[in-house]
Structure formats: C-alpha cells, structure tokens
C-alpha cells in the first residue's frame, strides 16, 4: 500500500517534470509547499508547520533543529533518520498518512499496542519539554523526510538561528 502511493508520487513527479509545471506532493497534512514565514518558521497554505529547502539544499532553521531533537528524543525507538527500528514504526512512512493534529496528539498523549504477539508502547511526551518545546521543528523535519525533501543524516547546510527562536526556546525551556 505504501509502496503503491510512493510509486504514484514518483509517476506524478515524472509527469509534472515532463509537462514543465509544478505539481505538489501530498502528505498526511496535504500540500507541504511553504507559503508564509513568521521569523523563519514556515507554514503551508492550511497553516500547518512545514519545511523550506533552498535550491542549494540549505534547510530552514526549524528543519535542522527538528533533526537534532528527533535524534535526541525519538531515535532511541524510531531509528536513525525516522526510518523505524526492530520495535517501532518508521515515521517517514507514518507522516505520509497522518496530519499535524494527529501527530501532535500521538506525541503528547502516547500510544499502546500490547498483545500476546507484541509489546509496543509509545510514551506520552506531553510533559517533556525536550520534546514539546520542539514539537513543530520535529514535525517539520519528519514531514520533509516523508516527502523526500530531506535525505538521511545531518542536513549539511541550514539557515541561521532566528532571534524569535532563541526567545521562544528560552520561554519554553525555562
């Protein structure tokens, strides 16, 4: 099923390229194209957080921070670069299907799938500042991974840290 949709997306890109027109990729939250920035934090047309990648591959600040905070707080279970592990799903796949609200609710509230066959438990991160203060950045990073806009590993180049970010971080982390 996931393979199918990826294949469809590939065909779509190929078509759009050959036709010479821009064709947007759809993920779980819709069209990720960045339309508006508030102090370096990008939004799509629906107001969801999203990524902005320059022609030279330079990522916006939040995508970069998302990589760092994902690696610190989520990698232990969800594997390097959002690819999943032996006991937690690939978020690169999940974000193709779930929207921002569902993502936020799952991170904050947790999820359990415990049966005779498996013991999968996602903790509720709602009280964890190391996650919740960076939730949008983590979302943006994973959204970029799900859409194939960012590859594996540490993004090589990123925008400078916006002043508004420092202020918001200090207020949130306390």
């Amino acid at each position: 099923m996931q393979r199918m949709s990826r294949a469809v997306a590939c065909v779509a890109i190929a078509l759009s390229l050959s036709a010479g027109i821009a064709y947007a990729i759809e993920d779980g939250a819709g069209d990720p194209t960045a339309v508006k920035s508030e102090d370096g934090k990008w939004q799509d047309k629906n107001g969801n957080p999203t990524f902005k990648i320059g022609d030279d591959g330079k990522v916006d600040w939040y995508t970069y921070v998302g990589f760092i905070r994902y690696s610190a707080n989520c990698l232990q279970c969800h594997g390097p670069d959002g690819l999943g592990s032996t006991y937690a799903p690939s978020l690169v796949d999940s974000l193709k299907h779930i929207d921002y609200t569902t993502f936020y609710a799952t991170v904050a509230g947790g999820k359990q799938n415990v049966s005779a066959a498996q013991n999968l438990v996602m903790p509720a991160e709602g009280a964890n500042k190391n996650v919740m203060c960076y939730i949008d950045a983590i979302y943006v990073y994973l959204r970029a991974r799900a859409d194939g806009a960012v590859g594996r590993g540490r993004p090589a180049k990123h925008d400078d840290k916006p002043e508004a970010y420092t202020k918001a971080e200090n207020e949130c982390m306390g």
Binding site: S85, R152, G153
Partner: peptide, 28 residues
Amino acid sequence: GVGGWAGIGLAAGLTDPHAGLGAVGGYA
C-alpha cells in the same frame, strides 16, 4: 535474538556506512 542497541538501526537500510550518515547507521 538480535536487538539491544544494535537492533535500533536494524530496520533501517543504509546507503554507505563510510559516509558517516545517521546514528547507528553502521548496523543497518
């Protein structure tokens, strides 16, 4: 019964371990 720290990278394929890509990449 593989797992532990090594198992975290197990599910993820790796393109090139020498490129110094993602964490635990070496085990992928």
